[in-house]
Computed example of a mutant assay.
Amino acid sequence: MHISLNGKRAIVSGSTAGIGLAIAIGLAEAGAEVVLNGRTQARVDEALKVVRERLPQARIIGIAADLGTQAGAQTLFDQVPHTDILVNNLGIFEPKPFFEIEDEDWQRFFDVNVLNAVRLSRHYAQGMAGRKWGRVVFLSSESALQIPTEMIHYGMTKTALLAVSRGLAETLAGTGVTVNAVLPGPTRSEGVGDFFAKLAEEQGVSTAELEASFLAEHRPTSLIKRLATVEEVANMVVYLASMQASATTGAALRVDGGVLRSIA
């Protein structure tokens, strides 16, 4: 199967590192014009450099904007009025005991992880429907279905994204626009890697030892017995953005390494 996205424009929110950057690279490799996004111009410029070094012919632009805010979203809308593919990747996580999660934390996680995706989808999906073709992908998580007790506020936002994704898919039924969610499992992204490295240093063990301990204690149902790579998650997103995925919509597709003990 050859995926070609020539002539299509894609926006990937939060794409200066980790899964988002891997998705941007995958979409650009398939021929799409890709809009990268980060909160600061420095991070955006670094990401653009990474992509251009790997794909010199890639058609890419960068937009510095905090999409966790209404003002940041408007900055994106003003500079990129329409798109064919929208990947709602932006998200934050933070392990924190439930009784220490303040109101402000709940609001911040909802604003960044959920409301930003709602704003972008509301703006761009209408244009897709008018043009009779489009792809919207939400980056959820296996934590949406298996809420982690170490960060319940994070799990809550990922569950909310599943509701938004399915509801939007039904709203756009028959328009030629597909809407899906992707559920990564534990993934060796920049944020997770930095978090594990810090913990490993504090505990006096190697990062590999810490990762193995994490899987054994917190994700014992993993069938691959390792962290996924960002490229493995990106591959699923690129497929969902393709012409070949035209009959896949309203779905939640797992790239979780078998963590979820479910056959559906």
Rank of each mutant, 00 (worst) to 15 (best):
residue 95 P to C: 00
residue 28 A to R: 00
residue 258 G to P: 14
residue 94 E to A: 04
residue 73 A to I: 09
residue 158 K to L: 03
residue 89 N to F: 00
residue 245 A to G: 12
residue 90 L to F: 01
residue 259 V to G: 12
residue 13 S to R: 02
residue 234 A to W: 08
residue 51 V to Q: 03
residue 167 G to W: 05
residue 162 L to N: 14
residue 166 R to W: 01
residue 188 R to M: 15
residue 32 A to F: 01
residue 190 E to N: 10
residue 185 G to F: 11
residue 209 E to L: 02
residue 93 F to V: 01
residue 83 T to V: 09
residue 163 A to D: 06
residue 138 F to G: 03
residue 105 D to C: 12
residue 159 T to P: 11
residue 182 V to Y: 06
residue 39 R to A: 01
residue 222 S to Q: 12
residue 37 N to K: 00
residue 200 A to E: 13
residue 196 F to T: 06
residue 32 A to L: 04
residue 262 S to H: 07
residue 157 T to Q: 04
residue 5 L to A: 07
residue 118 V to Q: 05
residue 110 F to W: 09
residue 206 S to C: 13
residue 109 F to R: 04
residue 251 A to Y: 11
residue 118 V to F: 09
residue 226 R to T: 13
residue 86 L to W: 00
residue 29 E to Q: 13
residue 33 E to C: 05
residue 212 A to Y: 06
residue 169 A to E: 12
residue 197 A to G: 15
residue 144 A to T: 05
residue 78 D to P: 02
residue 88 N to R: 06
residue 132 K to E: 07
residue 27 L to K: 10
residue 41 Q to T: 06
residue 122 R to H: 02
residue 2 H to Y: 06
residue 234 A to N: 08
residue 222 S to G: 14
residue 67 L to N: 08
residue 51 V to D: 05
residue 103 D to V: 07
residue 255 V to H: 12
residue 154 Y to S: 07
residue 127 G to C: 13
residue 31 G to A: 06
residue 214 F to N: 08
residue 110 F to N: 10
residue 227 L to Q: 08
residue 214 F to K: 12
residue 125 A to G: 10
residue 124 Y to G: 01
residue 92 I to F: 06
residue 228 A to F: 12
residue 54 R to S: 05
residue 166 R to A: 07
residue 226 R to S: 14
residue 6 N to G: 06
residue 125 A to R: 03
residue 109 F to C: 03
residue 95 P to E: 12
residue 83 T to Y: 03
residue 253 L to R: 10
residue 185 G to W: 12
residue 146 Q to G: 06
residue 141 S to K: 08
residue 49 K to C: 03
residue 203 Q to I: 07
residue 160 A to S: 11
residue 26 G to L: 01
residue 11 I to T: 04
residue 79 Q to V: 05
residue 144 A to H: 05
residue 114 V to R: 01
residue 155 G to W: 01
residue 44 V to H: 00
residue 172 L to H: 01
residue 96 K to C: 01
residue 152 I to N: 00
residue 113 N to E: 00
residue 57 Q to N: 13
residue 38 G to M: 01
residue 48 L to D: 07
residue 3 I to H: 08
residue 154 Y to D: 05
residue 227 L to A: 09
residue 244 Q to W: 04
residue 184 P to I: 02
residue 157 T to L: 05
residue 239 Y to R: 04
residue 229 T to A: 14
residue 39 R to H: 02
residue 161 L to K: 00
residue 240 L to T: 04
residue 244 Q to V: 14
residue 241 A to D: 05
residue 246 S to A: 14
